[in-house]
Design a protein around this nucleic acid. Structure first.
Lengths: 136, 136
DNA sequence: TATAAACCTTCCCACAATGGTAAGGTCAAC
DNA sequence: GTTGACCTTACCATTGTGGGAAGGTTTATA
């Protein structure tokens, strides 16, 4: 299997496969006589693992740790769970940050006329000149 | 005012002030005879605006647009509101993505013993080998 | 069989935003 | 007049991904 076929079989672009190889996330592929990378079902399986982990928001480093644990048949599931639980916490922090932004922005947008007058509480807030909004 | 003073007055690091200048987000500062950047209250005000916009998750490009509108005293507030509303939608999309990840991970973590046995539904899921979980 | 299309290879550039560091100039205080 | 705290520019790194060029290979077709 060529890299292009492995890419469409795994959903990981050829570009990213080479990248993952270059940073050591995946082992260097075997090569043909003419230096083409060769992949088999096992490699594609591994690439899918990586893709799934990335889609769940794990960093490449975390993914590498998970891959290591996956291949260590005697791992303790607690190790995996720890990574997952930490990742959940990080995601929830990020969500909380974004929700804070949304909350503020919704308030400001709600207060903004959104018409053709220049009067704009959104800009006033950004400028730190939040004049008292007419209570709503 | 030196760049360092402007940085502590505005909360934007000196590094970032120079960066914002280099990409054209803010106008080049005036210079002293010895080539030091000089800032006044107005510039600090502007930097605070930028900082606040960035803290609300606006990209540098969006921030530039907002800055332009801020300085255009005859803008229509609708233009600002449009940027804000689009940004809210983008943030909410991102939140939804992250929440999907959290939901999946919580389910998997819940199903994972987290003990010293190798048995791990998290890895099974990543590997695409999600064997039927014992119903819970 | 010749040639063109569709692959592959490596290498470099770009993004967004931020931090770091190094080599050198300047200013203020003591 | 020296020291320390500032400033200047110019690079490098990050994270993960895409784009492209320059050149080699394989395959399909005329």
């Amino acid at each position: 299997m060529n890299i292009g076929e492995a890419a469409s079989a795994s959903g990981v672009s050829a570009k990213m496969i080479r990248y993952y190889e270059s940073i050591g996330l995946i082992r260097p592929a075997q090569r043909t006589g003419s230096n083409y990378r060769v992949y088999g079902g096992e490699e594609v399986h591994l690439l899918r693992f990586v893709k799934r982990a990335r889609a769940l928001g794990f960093s490449v480093d975390e993914t590498a740790a998970l891959l290591g644990l996956w291949q260590d048949k005697s791992r303790a599931s607690a190790e995996v769970k720890t990574i997952a639980v930490n990742h959940i916490a990080a995601l929830e922090n990020k969500i909380a940050d974004l929700e804070g932004m949304v909350r503020t922005l919704k308030h400001l947008a709600h207060c903004c006329g959104g018409n053709d007058r220049p009067d704009c509480p959104i800009l006033d807030d950004l400028a730190g000149e939040a004049h008292a909004a007419k209570g709503h």
